[in-house]
Structure formats: C-alpha cells, structure tokens
Design a protein around this nucleic acid. Structure first.
Lengths: 221, 221
DNA sequence: ATTATCTATAGATCTATAGATAATGC
DNA sequence: ATTATCTATAGATCTATAGATAATGC
C-alpha cells in the first residue's frame, strides 16, 4: 500500500512537471511514465486516460494556488495597505516556488477553452473572497484620504500582472535586462520594484497641495 | 502566380491562427490546410514541414512585434515622459490587434526552449535600441528632479507586464472583474489604468517636502 | 482474492511523400 | 517545361487496452 502510493504520487509529480512545462498537447504519457520510473501501462492503470490525469493535475494546482492566495490575504486587523503589501509578497513568493505555473495556466486556458469554465468558476469564488475581505478596509483608508481612490479590481490586476509577468517572461528577459545576476536575486529585486509600483499607485492625487518645485513640474495631467 | 500567392498566403494566415491559438504541439497541419481551404499535401508542397511552416510564422510575428515597438518609441524631440506614454499606448494598441500573441510567444518560449535563442537574439537587439533611444532623455529629466530615479529596465518591464497581462488573463478575468462590459471598452479602460500606474511610478520621491496633511500620512517607508 | 505491475500490441492520429493530373508561362 | 494541385498511402508516434504475472491482505 505504501509502495502503491509512492508510485501513484511519482506519476503525479512527473505528470505535473511534464504538463506544466509542455502543456497538454506537448506532454506524452510515455515520457511521464518514464520520468516517474514506472511502466507506461501503470499510468493508465491508475489514471485511466491522459485527460483524467491532466484534470487531476490541474485540479491540484488550482487548489494550491487558491490556498496560497487566501492565505496570502488572511492577515487581518492590519490596515489595507499593509494587508495588500503582505498579500503581494506572499503571492510572489508562492510563484517563486512554482515558477512555471502562470505560463501553464495561461496557455491551457487559451489553447483549450473547454477548461475555462472550471478555472473561471474557482477563480470567481476566490476573487469574491479576496474582494470582500479587502474592499471595506480600502474604502476606509481612502475615505481618510490616505490613499488614492482606485477600483480594487484594477489595483489587484496591476499587482498580479507585475508579479506573474516576471515569471512568464523570465527566459527571454533575464539575460537581457540583468545579465549575470542569479535568478533568485533577480526575482527578489523585482518583488521590491512591484511593491514600489503598487505603493506609488496608491499615493493620493494630487500628491501635494502646496506649489513646491517638485510638485509644479509633475507631468500628471 | 496570383492564385499561388493567394493560396500560400491563405496557408500562412491559417497557420498563424492555428499556431497562435493552439501552440506548436496542439496545431495540426491537417486543420491548417482545411482552414486555408487547400488540400493537405499542398501545405507540405509550399512549406515542406510543419516545423518550417512554424518557423516562418514565428519569424513573421516577431518581425511585426519588433516593427511595432520600434515605431512606438520613435517619437523624438519630445520629453521622456511623453515618449514613454506614447510608446506604451501604441504598444497596447498593437496588442489589441493581436490579442493572443503574448500567450503564444510565452508558451512557445517556455515549452520549446530551442526557440529561446532566436527570440532572445532578436529581442536583444530591440531592447538595446529602445534603451539607447530612451536612456539619455530619462537621465535628463531625472537630473532636473522631474521624475523619480528608476532603472529603465524595471520601468519598461513594469509597463510591458501591465500591457501584456490583460491579454494573457483576459479569458479568465473579464467576466469576473467586469461582467457585461464589451471587450474593447474593458481593454481601453485598462490602457488608461496602466498609463496611470506608470505615471505615478515616476512621481519623484519624496513626493512633498512640506508636511502637508496628505503627505504626512503617506505609507511609503 | 484483490491489487499492482509488466509485456505486447491494437487502434487512432498525424506528418510527410510518392506519383498522377491540371494549370501556367515561355 | 515548370509550377501548382490532387489522391492515396506509407511511416511514425502516441494513447490505450488485453492478458499474463507478481505482490499483498485477509
């Protein structure tokens, strides 16, 4: 029984690797079996079809993603800006642990539109929860004039865009933008930049009411 | 001869559509031929192999992307911030015309790493040109204290992240974040948000030297 | 007895080509 | 003559299953 679970899990691990790097169409059940160190037939014994194995992998991944996001924003009792910042930081670190997850999800959603419904349904619940959890706090801080008025949807999309895109584009940009820098350092520097962008996005406008030199020359319309 | 070019081009168009939506592995030469309204053998007559057809499509796409970016930043004589803003706007509008191009490039780069070298080489030249063209102007404006000091690489990556990610995530997020809004309106609203983010990123810090109420409560560290 | 695992192979699908026929330019 | 196009099919690759054998729990 223990042996069994090991093999089944070995297949799942290998499958996740294969599916996330190559996509459904590029993945081969033979390669998965080989990577898992089992015979090809065993894969079908456990998971019946490639499609079912894929669904299982996708499901697991989305669950982990959900859990990480819910957990990322679960810091309560703190002001909106702190919660947001902490959420972004955790979200980024999660991606750092699963660097080709964004690529996988985005490809599969675009290329195999049958999958959209499932992903959308689960993301819907998730977004709903995060929203509900942050909206009131945000309003409160905005009412006090401490932060700019932004739609929370836009703000979160800004943040997720910044966080995810580094991983999506990494293979192309890393050598170009930061040659010789080790991956982890590169990513962590981006995390700080992303936080800065979001912080500045929330600076109340107009940033100054006095006509100080640095304010008069602002190019904000 | 005219007929010929029509068919060859029909195959190319169909191929681009098939490759960009399904990726190399998901694309079928039979489907491409069918979509182009030609017999399957004709596709191999013109392009020999699926791989060669793919290379041709990828090459065309990258060329168009390059051209659009070079053109986007070609506004000269204007101050850095105007050039940047205009560049981002044009870049975004280009993506609006080719909405599944980011997804395609990112998947293929990740899933078929053989392709990285080609894409990276061409992007390298491109990034080099854009950088050279903007760097001096940026320095000048920063020296005058009109904009914050940021690495140009970070700033451009911020912008491209924001622009590209809307298209990458559109299938999942549109219904969630803006139900009932027509796609074009949704995208154009995002363009404005992206511009706002980048503008605010460039607000010089500290934004105010006087201790006005709106400044003293800033949560910038 | 049931569950896990293997070998061998059937079936499906897709790319590519061979070889025949039609269209085109000289 | 050369170029374009078609029909038919070979070959390769991949998923899936049948059927045999080994391991495990009762």
């Amino acid at each position: 029984m223990k042996e069994t679970e090991n093999r089944e899990q070995a297949i799942l691990r290998a499958a996740e690797r294969e599916f996330t790097t190559r996509g459904f169409d590029g993945a081969k059940t033979t390669s998965i079996a080989e990577a898992a160190g089992v015979t090809h037939a065993l894969l079908h014994y456990y998971f019946r079809t490639k499609e079912k194995l894929y669904e299982r992998v996708l499901d697991d991944i989305i669950s982990r993603l959900e859990a990480s996001i819910v957990e990322a924003f679960s810091v309560s009792g703190a002001p909106f800006t702190s919660r947001l910042e902490e959420g972004l930081r955790r979200h980024f670190l999660f991606l750092l642990d699963h660097p080709d997850l964004p690529r996988f999800l985005i490809h599969e959603i675009g290329a195999r539109s049958e999958r959209i419904a499932l992903v959308r349904a689960r993301m819907g619940r998730l977004v709903g929860r995060v929203f509900a959890s942050l909206q009131a706090d945000m309003e409160r801080q905005a009412a006090r004039g401490e932060i700019a008025r932004v739609s929370l949807a836009d703000l979160l999309l800004d943040a997720v865009s910044l966080n995810a895109f580094v991983f999506l584009s990494y293979p192309v940009i890393a050598q170009l933008l930061a040659p010789g820098v080790e991956p982890r350092a590169f990513f962590l520097a981006r995390l700080e930049e992303n936080l800065t962008v979001i912080r500045k996005r929330l600076i109340p406008d107009p940033p100054c009411e006095t006509a100080s030199p640095s304010c008069s020359s602002l190019w904000l319309p």
